[in-house]
Amino acid sequence: MTLDLYGFGPALAAGTLMTIKLALSALALGLVLGLLGALAKTSPYKPLQWLGGTYSTIVRGIPELLWVLLIYFGTVQLMRNLADLLGIESLELSAFAAGTIALGICFGAYATEVFRGAILAIPKGHREAGQALGLSRPRIFWRLILPQMWRIALPGLGNLFMILMKDTALVSVIGLEEIMRRSQIAVTSSKEPFTFFLVAAFIYLGLTIVAMIGLHFLEKRSSRGFIRSAG
Rank of each mutant, 00 (worst) to 15 (best):
A95T: 14
G214P: 06
K46D: 06
G7L: 05
L215D: 01
G108T: 01
A28E: 08
E89A: 00
D4L: 08
T42H: 07
T168I: 12
I20P: 02
M212E: 11
V59E: 13
K46S: 04
E128C: 03
G53S: 09
E128R: 10
S56N: 08
P47H: 05
P193G: 06
R151M: 00
A95G: 13
K41E: 05
L85Q: 04
G130F: 04
L29T: 11
F73H: 05
T100M: 12
W67C: 04
V171N: 02
Q49L: 07
G61L: 00
M79N: 08
V171S: 08
P147F: 06
T16A: 11
R181G: 07
P193K: 04
T19L: 09
A129I: 02
T2K: 10
S56Y: 06
G37P: 07
F96G: 03
T42N: 15
I119M: 12
K166R: 12
L170S: 00
F196H: 01
G61V: 00
F217L: 02
F202E: 15
A132S: 15
I20Y: 06
Y45H: 11
V32A: 14
T2N: 12
V187F: 08
L48V: 07
V173W: 01
M79P: 06
S136A: 12
G225Q: 13
A118W: 06
L51P: 08
G225L: 13
F96H: 03
A13L: 14
W142T: 13
G74D: 08
L207D: 06
I145P: 15
G175P: 12
M79I: 07
E219L: 09
G52N: 02
S56A: 14
L5I: 00
A38R: 10
L51I: 11
G104A: 00
L164D: 07
T195L: 12
P155F: 06
L22C: 04
D167P: 02
V68H: 08
R224I: 15
F194P: 01
F217V: 03
P123I: 00
S172Q: 05
R116Y: 05
L218Y: 06
R80A: 02
M149G: 09
G130H: 07
G61N: 00
L146A: 14
T75E: 10
V171L: 07
L5M: 08
T19N: 10
K41C: 14
A26R: 06
R228E: 10
V114K: 01
F217A: 04
G74Y: 09
G34W: 14
P63G: 02
G206K: 06
F194V: 13
I209L: 14
G117E: 01
S172F: 10
N81A: 15
L66M: 15
R224D: 05
S172I: 06
V68L: 13
E178H: 05
V187H: 09
L86G: 04
P10I: 02
A118V: 04
G7C: 04
A38E: 09
A109L: 02
L205M: 10
A11V: 13
S172P: 00
V114L: 05
M212P: 02
A28L: 15
M165W: 13
K124G: 04
F217P: 03
R116K: 04
I140H: 05
A230R: 14
L218A: 15
L146Y: 12
S94Y: 05
A121M: 00
Q184K: 10
F202N: 09
K21A: 15
L78Y: 15
